[in-house]
Design a protein around this nucleic acid. Structure first.
Lengths: 334, 334
DNA sequence: CTGAAAGCGCTTACAG
DNA sequence: CTGAAAGCGCTTACAG
């Protein structure tokens, strides 16, 4: 590995001078400068970031925390975020969080060992020490897809999950559906919110909430959606519509229904939330709530950048607009 | 940030001794040891990795290169790889490559500045300097999903793309199809291989290759698949089956066909390659070739680890087995 | 067993 | 404008 010393020696100058032309903030004589540039070109020298970080106390590195088993929506979101960070010249470091206190502790230690300039969290983290660490060290933090709640010193960006659920369930009700099953989980706050929206929509329409129609899923993927339907069908309770907490669950559900001779949307309507890439390309295409993915990713990075660069000092809570996307999977009850 | 000095001071020992208990390879008196451990516990001290890396000349960091616009299969693969790396205690650094020489150069510079211990490449990189750098600095490298070809000092892991294509196209031919369109691209070597397999299958069955039935796609996603079908339909040439280079293209294709009143599989059969998560949950479910995703991810990491730890000195080329997954999207020509 | 010291690759006051 | 020197947070021979 060629180091700054090598470059200095070859260009017959001091390392300080080399450093100056690399960083370009101090005047250096044209002659030495061009000689140094030449050597850099020849040797392909690139400064060692670890060394720079250590003296500068700045890393330009952002830690991104996401669940170990991230779903499609989170995948799209994090790749959006990664690209936006890259554009601003940040480096990103990924931390896959196991949702138990052991996993969270392990993540905290990795975080400490990395000295990031900022943190983006896509997954709720319970560990108090985690928040304390960020706070004590004044590491700007942005939470995406969930509320800041107990977090101090963190901005948050998310949709109103309760409203989203309410809107889409309302739509089912408008279509005449009364027996609406729900596939979801209360493990994360967005699930809690979505369930709340579901119940509110029912209540406002004077429909009884039926606990038996509420199926708890073990993960947010197609397999879990399919399993949930198996469980639901075993109960032999009538239902004409399904509200899945996420699009992926909905896809699994639709397939499982079909395998049981139940057609979507002819026999049962199905809706989701998220509007992932596939939702408009499946057959039937999925009626769902769109989360503004790109805007979310962009805003996350912008806000974090503002915090880091000192342009924004106060933490904010951003609610992003949603929209109901009507497609083929939900129709009037006949 | 608490440093090793702080710990040393609080424990009333030298930094050398603290370092020794952290690394645990040298005997330290029980008394000092417990005192140091206590201080570490109290202060929440974690060593600064950048500093460690610098002196140790080892980073335990792996650079993962993937295309800027990675498709679903690559997503699943890279998340598989990331998890496997994590289990072995490696850190991963992601590099999103823009497929032009500017983008590749930028990536090389980022790589140089990071000093990784190993590299995993999910995307063909043309830049000669890139390979030269890895070679000169003896950085173990594993290429996944494509052949090592011009790369020296790199192991590779992939399927036989030509065979995969041939197998699935053969299957269509067995089902009686003669006019088989192809959606793909020659931008990457796997595309070239898949096209070759397609042609070979046709040839062996004494079917004429029709250039007009070969549609060039601009990306590997559902939108591109849909666009390709639009282009194909404009030509008004009869076809009874479609071979898409990837599953995502196939999904886009199926949807676009449907929107034009063409049913799958009743009117047209469609097959893909990859077998991504969704392929068994769509309707119709997709007939495709399965790439052994998990095995690929695991093997990639194992091989890289062996190279890094010196357990494996020679570079190898690994061909992974594929399998034809027959599902609903392809049926007998009637 | 343990501390003082050198050194990893950088940057930046400090003096010229 | 420019070099010698100190220092960032570590590890590891080197001497005791």
């Amino acid at each position: 590995m060629v180091s700054i010393k090598d470059v200095a020696k070859l260009a017959k100058v001091s390392v300080a001078t080399v450093s100056r032309v690399i960083n370009g903030n101090v005047k250096v004589s044209e002659e030495k400068k061009s000689r140094i540039l030449e050597v850099i070109e020849e040797t392909g020298y690139v400064p060692n970031r670890a060394a720079q970080d250590m003296v500068l106390k700045k890393t330009k590195k952002i830690g991104i925390f996401l669940p170990n088993t991230f779903n499609q929506f989170q995948r799209q979101l994090f790749s959006e975020i990664a690209h936006n960070l890259e554009e601003l010249g940040y480096y990103s470091s990924f931390f896959f969080v196991n949702t138990d206190s052991e996993g969270e502790k392990a993540c905290l230690n990795k975080l400490k060992s990395e000295r990031v300039d900022g943190v983006i969290v896509l997954q709720e983290i319970e560990l108090i020490e985690f928040r304390d660490y960020l706070k004590k060290n004044e590491i700007p933090t942005v939470l995406v897809t969930f509320e800041s709640g107990d977090w101090e010193n963190a901005s948050s960006i998310h949709i109103q999950d309760e409203v989203a659920a309410k809107v889409v369930v309302n739509y089912l009700i408008e279509l005449g559906h009364k027996d609406i099953a729900m596939l979801g989980s209360r493990k994360h706050s967005f699930g809690v919110e979505r369930e709340r929206g579901y119940k509110k929509a029912l209540k406002e329409a004077n429909l009884q909430f039926n606990k038996e129609l509420s199926i708890n899923i073990e993960a947010y993927n197609v397999v879990a959606g399919s399993n949930a339907i198996k469980e639901l069908l075993k109960k032999k309770i009538p239902f004409s519509a399904i509200f899945a907490h996420t699009d992926e669950l909905a896809f699994g559900a639709i397939r499982e229904l079909l395998d049981n001779g139940i057609r979507v949307p002819e026999d049962v309507s199905v809706v989701g939330i998220d509007d992932i890439e596939y939702s408009s390309y499946t057959s039937p295409s999925l009626t769902t709530i769109r989360q503004p993915l790109e805007e979310m990713g962009k805003l996350t990075v912008t806000i974090l950048h503002n915090h880091i660069s000192g342009k924004s000092l106060s933490y904010e809570k951003n609610l992003l607009p949603i929209s109901l996307i009507k497609r083929e999977s939900a129709v009037k009850l006949n």
